[in-house]
């Protein structure tokens, strides 16, 4: 039983390390700011999630596990806020995203191109 928990936490922490590095590699490889935010969110979700679950298994049942889960919840709720604020600020500053296709006008009459998504 102890061995199973040990192996499981090893696997989870290795997976977490893998996704953490993948997110950081994406941060360097991606061509523009919007795509970089996508890459960084891999670190924020799967990387952090697996690392914390692995540590939870190591810590056993107790306050430490609870605090780790608080940390996970914190990432879950603040991650999207930061990503959204960044993306909105970029579009507002008229940074042109690298686009393969702009489908903003696909289901309604096309409005101005400089739509930054803010309410008037």
């Amino acid at each position: 039983m102890m061995l199973a928990v040990e192996v499981a936490s090893w696997v989870l922490i290795l997976l977490g390390s893998f996704f953490t590095i993948v997110g950081a590699v994406g941060l360097v490889r991606m061509p523009d700011i919007f795509t970089r935010i996508h890459a960084a969110s891999v670190t924020d979700t799967l990387g952090v999630g697996f690392l914390i679950l692995g540590m939870c298994l190591q810590a056993g049942f107790g306050l430490v596990t609870l605090k780790l889960l608080f940390l996970l919840a914190l990432f879950f709720f603040t991650g999207p806020v930061v990503a959204h604020a960044l993306a909105q600020a970029c579009l507002h500053e008229k940074i042109k995203p690298v686009l393969a296709e702009d489908r903003r006008g696909h289901d309604r009459p096309r409005q101005s191109n400089e739509d930054d998504g803010r309410q008037p």
């Binding site: 922490i13 290795l14 977490g16 390390s17 590095i21 950081a24 590699v25 941060l27 990387g47």
Partner: peptide
């Protein structure tokens, strides 16, 4: 191992 991986990611960031 995890600490090393995080340090690598930090360097990339």
């Amino acid at each position: 191992t995890a600490a090393a991986a995080i340090l690598v990611a930090l360097a990339l960031a």
